[in-house]
Structure formats: structure tokens, C-alpha cells
Nucleic acid binder design. Structure first.
Lengths: 141, 141
DNA sequence: ATCTTTGCAAACGGTTTGCATTGCG
DNA sequence: CGCAATGCAAACCGTTTGCAAAGAT
């Protein structure tokens, strides 16, 4: 039995075609690649899978609740998803072409904790987005 | 003539009642206070001003374009606005009581620019939220 | 067989837009 | 007076939900 089926069962979710297919899409993506619900929907359609957009949303929400994926709200109103990883990473978003890059920086992390502590605050999660323009290979769309 | 009228003129906007009123609301707010379009709309209604919600959005968008206000997209889909300040400030959000604190740290800012630059990226805006629990005075709601 | 999950279409909430009217300059 | 700005209502877009049909165990 494939790995994804076990992950689904572990999360208390029945193994159904839409769930498996969506999990596979996320799993086979390059690390750092983000998908909107629409992206995934289109990929499914192109593969000839007959899955409704509503189901994509439902499945992604279930995956999020199960800790399998994390959801990010980018500026612009729509959400993107990626398979959950345990490293803290941050995002750079190009406002022109929508490209997203990731980075992780120990100095930033350390400093953030220092600041939070000095404010009487215990950090459990963070969200850092840098918005701007990528100077090379930016294809406006 | 009041300050706000000059600001409006400078931005190439005619001095109209909705624009002046909205500017005043933002101006009289405590630093760090954020308003949704709806918030501002309600404040106007309560003051007996007959301004349409669509106009509030239009004015806020114009103000943003003119650099008078900055818009933040919080998780949850709606936008909030505040009068533009030139300091880059970040947010600490308590996941228990919903309290929001702000801070600004030169070291963080500098490091962020370094990182972005090394990724071939020019930062125009950023969004850093630290989520956690405030250790004192946290009133769960 | 039962209880979950799905697809569809309709509802939703925040935001934007078309158009006739109002009002600044 | 002329053109920009407004109000209203309808359109929009991403997302959620109600419900009857299909599917998993």
C-alpha cells in the first residue's frame, strides 16, 4: 500500500480517489512550490480526473486540520497550500509575476525570538513575507 | 485650510467630503490602530455621513496609490488600513486573546534586505507576524 | 448496510465596477 | 459649465455549504 494511504488513514480520513490524487500532487511537487486550490483543480482536470473544485477545498481543509499541509494567505486574497514540513521557512513573493521563493535564516529566527521575549511573548509560529520584484526572470502575467 | 486638504491636493485628488472624512478618521486614530473598510463605513454612518461603502473602498485604494495609507491583508480574507508611517513595523499577535502589538527592529529590517538581495529581489513591502501567547495580561476570549 | 464523501449549484463575504447623478473647481 | 467623484445595485472572485447521489469499509 502506498505511503499516502497510510497518511490518510492516520489522519482518520477514508482513502478516496480525490484525497489520494491531491496528496500525490502535493507530494510530487518541488519543495517550496505552492498551489492554490484552483491550481490543483486544473491539474486534476488535465489528468482527466473528475473532481469538483469544492472537493479540492474540502480536502485541503481536512489536510490542514490533520497537519498534513499548511495554508498561506498571500496578499491578493487567495490561499496557497504546500505539504507541511517542520522547518521554519519564510517567503519572498514577487508582486509582479507571483513567483514565490523560500528562505530560512537562523539570524532572523534568533532575533525574532529575542524581540518577542522582550515583549513578554512566547512565539509558537510566525509568518514572514517579503513582497517585491524579482530582478531577473520576472515574467509579468 | 486644514492639513488634510493639502495632503489630498498633493495627491491629485479633489477635496470632497468622503475623502476628507475618511482621512480624518485615519488621522485621529491611535498609532497602530487598524481599520477595515467596513469599520470606516460604520464610523461614517454613525457620524451621520451618507457615504457609500463602495466609495470607502475607492477612497482607500486611492489613498494607498498615493502613499497616504498602507493596506494589510490579515489572515481571514479582509484588508485593514492605517495611515502610512515611514517606519517599517511588524506585528505580534496573541493567538489566545487576539491582542496585537507592534514593534520595529533595525536589525531585522537590515537582515531581511540582505537576504532578499541575495535572492535577486527588491523588497517593496513586508509582513512579519509572530503568533504566540502573551505571558501577562492575556485574557482569553 | 451504514456512514462518509462527493459533485453540483447555489450561497457567501469582501471587494470592484457600470452607470446615471451629484458636486467640485 | 465640464469633468471628476459619488451612490446604488449588480457583478465578481475565491471560498463555503446544502443536498441528493455515489463510494468506502
Amino acid at each position: 500500500m502506498a505511503i499516502e494511504n497510510q497518511e490518510l488513514r492516520k489522519a482518520g480520513l477514508k482513502v478516496t480517489l480525490p484525497r489520494v490524487k491531491i496528496y500525490q500532487i502535493l507530494e510530487q511537487a518541488d519543495a517550496g512550490e505552492h498551489f492554490s486550490a484552483e491550481d490543483i483543480y486544473k491539474l486534476l482536470m488535465n489528468s482527466g480526473e473528475d473532481v469538483g473544485l469544492a472537493t479540492v477545498y474540502r480536502v485541503l481543509t481536512q489536510f490542514e486540520a490533520a497537519g498534513l499541509v499548511s495554508r498561506h494567505h498571500f496578499e491578493g486574497g487567495h490561499s496557497v497550500f504546500e505539504l507541511a514540513r517542520d522547518d521554519q521557512h519564510d517567503h519572498v513573493v514577487c508582486v509582479k509575476c507571483g513567483k514565490v521563493a523560500e528562505f530560512s535564516d537562523a539570524e532572523l529566527t534568533r532575533r525574532q525570538h529575542e524581540i518577542a521575549e522582550s515583549l513578554g511573548f512566547t512565539v509558537t509560529d510566525r509568518t514572514l513575507y517579503l513582497y517585491g520584484v524579482c530582478t531577473a526572470g520576472c515574467e509579468d502575467k
